[in-house]
Amino acid sequence: MEAGLQPAGVEGVGGVQGVARSRVERVRRAKAPKAPRWVHPLVIVAALVPFVWVAFAMWSDVFEGTRYLGSEPIKESEHFTGKWALRFLLGCLAVTPLIRITKIGWLITYRRTFGLIAFFYACVHLTIYFGLDIELMWSNLVEDVLDRTYITLGMTALLLMVPLALTSTKASIRWLGNRKWTAVHRLVYVSAVLGVIHFYMAVKKDVREPLVFAAILATLFAIRWWYRRPVAGNKRAGDLASGG
């Protein structure tokens, strides 16, 4: 596992240049096919479409009297952004398994991208909850966080993402070093689990949708476990063991 940390950690920051890596790795990288340059910006724009839409719908419902978000636009936008945060968090966690399976190395770029977009949606979710749903009432916020388990968990999930977002830059990896950085970023697993439990506990009775999220998360964990499992005589097991 230790041995595997290095290259995977390097990959882990979206193809950071200038960090030592093995010659084999360098050759493999050079030959690896890359996506066209415009793909990444396009993905980012696409990922922000739900936000732009909900912002427009909210504005229009409130000021123009439309009904894009139904009878309770505040609740609807709150749930909408919360679910998008979880989707991108799962997307972020899907990147490494996807690379394992497809061997398409350049996908790694999207791990950071999706993680940051998930954080963005989580922040919007929190803003709608605090600003519009409970109308900036600190007493209500404190009560919710202390007494209501699903909010305690949701808030924890979001707070855990803060250090990850702050250390998502190349400079942070150099500053922390690969091993420490990787260790810190394992918090994303905790955040995802808490986020899904938060969703599960928040719904009134029909838990089918949160269970879908939970099933996807479990599948992603299972794939990780599959690739990490010690296999006697299989050199790849160690090589692929870490990261993500």
Binding site: N140, R148, Y150
Partner: peptide, 9 residues
């Protein structure tokens, strides 16, 4: 248990 009933929308 999961929200306040003191206010409503």
């Amino acid at each position: 248990p999961r929200w306040t009933q003191a206010r409503e929308r």
